[in-house]
Structure formats: structure tokens, C-alpha cells
């Protein structure tokens, strides 16, 4: 098992290197003058001597590969530069907001698992009945619905008209768990809606495949109750592709936080990123993009490791 994990981690390293090159290139090559990106409008006020000195000090006269290696060396040590807007170190700004985004993402993930897997199971068990059609319709609607629109409609219904839940804002779960939960319900449901659709469809599809297998017929033939057949024999085997979807959807979930945090005024990494885009605060944009990519790779790695938990044949193979 450990050997499998180490091998899988090692295979991520080249991808991580390319990710770092792309992130560096995004602002330092495509983005034009890095000094302008770093100084913002203040660059125009620099004298020619001061500008030349800054370029020398920042290593901007070095060849691009050298600049990249310096940037990577700093990034590996946790130094992603300084925000032009606030002067705060980018790593610190990201770490300040990361717990907020993690709480939101975890709640969305929880919603998806609790709602989508039973939904997919019901659809598969009652194939071609109204239950299947209703569950499939819910799943399809979840995928097609723009999350930000759904968020606005949920605010309208539950916060403005029914006044049951707060329309926006964030409370840390460690400060006041009840208030935190009330503030998280709408954004987490909104963020998770796409995931609910994808996971429900995948659960239905894999359950249908598994339910047609010989071992399910055998389990039924030897007199096992339907509940045990479904939970112990079918669901466990049907979970493998579902885990894949959960891993692959991790990137979408992260991307979705940018929009959802904006809709619900949640001070997370997504909102920080959007603010940085508007302010052309390229060090923050670069840091946020790198963080998102590393988190996605970690999510994919998690999915691969979970494979081995559900199906030992993979680590043997």
C-alpha cells in the first residue's frame, strides 16, 4: 500500500513541475512586464535609475529559466511574493482565507454525498420507474443549473421571502457552530448542486452495471436480504467510479468557490482571487492559481488512493 502511494506521489511530481512552469509563465511571460505587475501604477513614478536598480534587485535581468528557478525556490519555501494591493505576503493572505474555503467545500461535499448517493441508488434500483425518472431529472437539473443563479434564487426564497436563513456572510464553525451551520446551508447547497448531479448519475450508472453481475445473483440466490445485497455487495463495488467522479469534480468545486463566495459574500480564497483579478494584483492571482492546482492534484491523488481502499486489485496490479 505504502509503495503504491509513493509511486503515485512520484508520478505527480512531473505534472507539478509543469504546473509551476505554466503558473510562472502566466504572469511573467504572458502578463507582460513583471515589474509593472509587481508595482502596479507606481511603476510609472520610478526614475530610470530606480527602475534599473529594482530590475537588477528583483532578478528581472536574468534569463527566464533562472527567474523561474528563483521563483520556484521561493515558492517551495512558502514565499509567493507580496500583494500589491495590501502589502501582505501572498502566502499569509491565502492561509488566512483557506479555512473559510475548506469549511465551505467540506459542507458542499457533505451535501453531495448525503443526497447524491441515495438518489443514484434509488434511480438504479427502481430503473425505468417514475422514481428513476424523477431522480435522473433532479441530477440533470443539478448539472445544467448555473450555480450562481441557483444561489440567488435560494437567497430570494429562504432569506428574503421566508426569512429562514441569512442571505450572506460567514461565521467560523469554531466560534459559533449553530450560526456557522445556518450561514453555510445555502452556499454549500449551491456549491454542491453540480456535484450532486454528477455523483448521482455516476452512482446510478455504476449500480446498474454492478446489479447485473453474477455475484449479485448469487448473493440473492443464497437468500441474503435485499438491503444486505445492496449495501454490502452492490454499493461497495459501485463506489469505485463514484470515487473517480468525486476526485475529478474537486477542481470544479474549487472553481465554483470563486462564484459562490462572491454571491454569498464569504471571505474565502475565491473572493480574494476575484478581488486580485479586478485589482490586477498578479502576485495574488499567481499564488491562488498555484494553490488551486496543487489542491486539485492532491484531490486526484486522494481519489487514486481511495481506489485501492475500495478495490485491492488495483494496488496489486
Amino acid at each position: 500500500m505504502l509503495r503504491f502511494i509513493l509511486r503515485r506521489v512520484a508520478s505527480t511530481v512531473p505534472v507539478l513541475v509543469i504546473v509551476s512552469i505554466l503558473t510562472f509563465s502566466l504572469t511573467n511571460v504572458l502578463g507582460g512586464d513583471p515589474l509593472l505587475a509587481l508595482m502596479g501604477e507606481e511603476e510609472g513614478r520610478l526614475t530610470a535609475e530606480a527602475e534599473a536598480l529594482m530590475r537588477e534587485e528583483l532578478g528581472l535581468n536574468d534569463p527566464l529559466p533562472v527567474q523561474y528557478l528563483n521563483w520556484l525556490w521561493n515558492a517551495v519555501q512558502g514565499d509567493l511574493g507580496t500583494s500589491i494591493q495590501t502589502g501582505q505576503p501572498v502566502t499569509e493572505a491565502l492561509m488566512d482565507r483557506l479555512p473559510v474555503t475548506i469549511q465551505l467545500g467540506a459542507a458542499a461535499w457533505g451535501f453531495a454525498l448525503v443526497l447524491a448517493i441515495p438518489l443514484g441508488m434509488i434511480a438504479a434500483i427502481s430503473r425505468d420507474t417514475w422514481k428513476d425518472q424523477a431522480a435522473t431529472a433532479v441530477a440533470l437539473a443539478g448539472i445544467a443549473m448555473p450555480s450562481f443563479w441557483m444561489g440567488l434564487m435560494l437567497i430570494l426564497l429562504f432569506a428574503v421571502w421566508l426569512q429562514l436563513l441569512p442571505p450572506s456572510g460567514f461565521v467560523n464553525i469554531w466560534d459559533d457552530p449553530m450560526a456557522a451551520a445556518r450561514h453555510l446551508v445555502l452556499p454549500a447547497l449551491t456549491l454542491g448542486v453540480d456535484l450532486i448531479g454528477s455523483v448521482a448519475r455516476q452512482t446510478r450508472s455504476s449500480m446498474l452495471e454492478v446489479l447485473g453481475q453474477d455475484y449479485i445473483r448469487t448473493a440473492r440466490a443464497k437468500g441474503l436480504g435485499e438491503r444486505i445485497v445492496l449495501s454490502r455487495h452492490a454499493l461497495r463495488n459501485a463506489m469505485l467510479p463514484v470515487v473517480t467522479v468525486l476526485g475529478l469534480q474537486f477542481a470544479n468545486l474549487l472553481g465554483g468557490t470563486v462564484i459562490i463566495e462572491q454571491v454569498f459574500a464569504i471571505p474565502g480564497v475565491g473572493r480574494l482571487t476575484l478581488g486580485a483579478v479586478f485589482a490586477q494584483d498578479m502576485p495574488v492571482v499567481q499564488g491562488a492559481v498555484l494553490l488551486a492546482a496543487v489542491a486539485t492534484l492532491a484531490g486526484n491523488l486522494w481519489a487514486d488512493i481511495m481506489y485501492t481502499v475500495f478495490d485491492p486489485r488495483i494496488r496489486v496490479g
Partner: peptide, 23 residues
């Protein structure tokens, strides 16, 4: 394929935001 893997590692919306920020 490693290049594609690396591109897939960026959440599409965040990548799009970053590209729009640059362009």
C-alpha cells in the same frame, strides 16, 4: 499528455479567470 495533465490540474474557472486577468 503531461502538459494536458498539468492544464487539467487548474480548475477551469480559475484558469479562465487568470487568463482573463492577464489578457
Amino acid at each position: 499528455m503531461r502538459l494536458m495533465d498539468a492544464l487539467l490540474a487548474f480548475p477551469r474557472l480559475i484558469l479562465a479567470l487568470a487568463i482573463v486577468a492577464v489578457l
